[in-house]
Simulated scan of single mutants.
Amino acid sequence: MVKHLAEDKGLAAGSVRNIYDVTAALFAAAVEDRALAVSPCKKIRLPRGADSEVDVPTVEERSSGCAGRWTSAGGPW
């Protein structure tokens, strides 16, 4: 599943990790409820995300308007 999401679907490492976390929690609940003997979510190698820097605007950029790049909410969204 992890390989399919990362390679075939082209999802980012963080998205794959989020999906894995939910799936692992579901299987853990099934084990706790004794619906499964063990979770298949053990020893799964998740893709590593690229370390990227966050582009934070300076005070000057924020106050100058930045030609619509940054909204009043504080980000490019």
Results as ranks from 00 to 15, higher is better:
residue 2 V to E: 06
residue 12 A to I: 09
residue 16 V to H: 06
residue 17 R to L: 05
residue 13 A to F: 03
residue 17 R to H: 12
residue 76 P to M: 15
residue 46 L to V: 13
residue 20 Y to H: 14
residue 47 P to T: 05
residue 24 A to G: 10
residue 5 L to K: 06
residue 54 V to L: 15
residue 60 E to D: 09
residue 7 E to D: 12
residue 75 G to Q: 05
residue 2 V to I: 14
residue 30 A to T: 08
residue 72 S to K: 09
residue 9 K to S: 07
residue 44 I to Q: 10
residue 18 N to D: 02
residue 67 A to R: 06
residue 23 T to Q: 05
residue 75 G to I: 11
residue 40 P to N: 10
residue 44 I to W: 04
residue 50 A to R: 08
residue 58 T to A: 14
residue 74 G to M: 05
residue 32 E to M: 07
residue 29 A to V: 02
residue 45 R to M: 10
residue 33 D to T: 03
residue 2 V to M: 05
residue 33 D to A: 06
residue 53 E to C: 10
residue 34 R to M: 00
residue 21 D to T: 11
residue 17 R to V: 06
residue 3 K to D: 02
residue 31 V to G: 01
residue 38 V to Y: 08
residue 65 G to P: 04
residue 61 E to Y: 14
residue 57 P to G: 11
residue 34 R to S: 03
residue 42 K to T: 13
residue 7 E to M: 09
residue 7 E to I: 01
residue 25 A to L: 00
residue 7 E to G: 10
residue 54 V to I: 15
residue 70 W to T: 08
residue 25 A to E: 00
residue 46 L to T: 04
residue 57 P to W: 07
residue 23 T to F: 10
residue 58 T to L: 15
residue 67 A to Y: 07
residue 29 A to F: 01
residue 65 G to L: 13
residue 65 G to V: 14
residue 70 W to V: 00
residue 47 P to Y: 03
residue 8 D to F: 09
residue 3 K to I: 05
residue 55 D to K: 05
residue 50 A to H: 11
residue 45 R to D: 01
residue 77 W to N: 10
residue 71 T to G: 02
residue 11 L to V: 11
residue 75 G to P: 00
residue 44 I to L: 02
residue 37 A to Y: 02
residue 14 G to K: 01
residue 10 G to E: 13
residue 57 P to R: 02
residue 18 N to L: 04
